[in-house]
């Protein structure tokens, strides 16, 4: 099977967008998960609801809201462009932001579950051994959350590869810039005689999906084994 330059571009772009999206959301998701599990503050419920919003909203609505907020004339987008020259709408970075927002609830859920499963007694033990708050988090809590963080990252990565609605609404469908695999597939279907191209892209997506799942399972097994949870 021969792939065209445009298809390979879409593959590369999908990887780039999904990787950036996961790297961007991982630390934020960890912080939010920590706040939701351990935090005792007013508005925790509101934060929880806000985080889960992309899960229940149509992706197109999320894309539209992003456009309103992060567009060139939006309150945040305008400010970013004015002070840092950063443009998000219609760029690869914007695509990463859109997929990050869409996959954020999945990631927070996975990390949150793993944090809830961490035995507070182990943190107490670390405390009596002289570890301060940040030290405890880095040396005990974070490693014990690792299975959940990995699961969250892989799920979010897979979801980012496939995100369509929010991406096309926020950053449009620009070849080489924002045309990821699902957008390329959509374009191929819209094009006369694009059937073969669509099939090739579908195969690529399948292979990526299976590869991701296998990688996730392998990592999870390795971590479980080292923690003695197998």
């Amino acid at each position: 099977m021969e792939f065209t330059a445009g298809e390979l571009d879409a593959l590369r772009l999908s990887f780039s967008v999904a990787s950036r999206s996961v790297l961007l959301s991982l630390p934020v998701a960890t912080l939010i998960a920590w706040l939701l599990v351990r935090g005792r503050f007013r508005g925790r419920f509101a934060l929880d609801a806000l985080v889960h919003l992309p899960l229940v909203l149509p992706p197109v609505v999320v894309g539209y809201l992003l456009l309103v907020i992060f567009g060139r004339r939006g309150p945040v987008g305008g400010w970013l462009h004015e002070h840092f020259g950063i443009q998000l709408a219609f760029t690869t970075a914007g695509a990463a932001l859109a997929t990050a927002v869409m996959s954020f609830p999945l990631m927070v859920r996975a990390i949150r579950l793993s944090l809830e499963a961490v035995d507070r007694g182990l943190e107490d033990a670390a405390r009596t051994l002289g570890a301060g708050p940040l030290d405890r988090f880095v040396s005990i809590t974070l490693p014990l959350m690792l299975p959940g963080i990995l699961a969250g990252a892989v799920t979010a990565f897979a979801a980012s590869l496939g995100e369509f609605g929010a991406v096309i609404t926020f950053v449009s469908n620009i070849p080489g810039e924002t045309r990821t695999l699902p957008l390329a597939l959509y374009t191929a279907i819209q094009t006369p005689d694009g059937d073969a191209a669509a099939a090739r892209i579908a195969v690529l997506s399948l292979v990526l999906g299976f590869g991701g799942l296998a990688l996730a399972e392998g990592l999870a097994r390795y971590v479980r084994r080292t923690l003695g949870q197998a």
Partner: peptide, 19 residues
Amino acid sequence: PPERRELGYVFQDARLFPH
């Protein structure tokens, strides 16, 4: 705070760090 009390604590359930 406990981390500065310098008291060794042995718990009933050992609480060894699994990782």
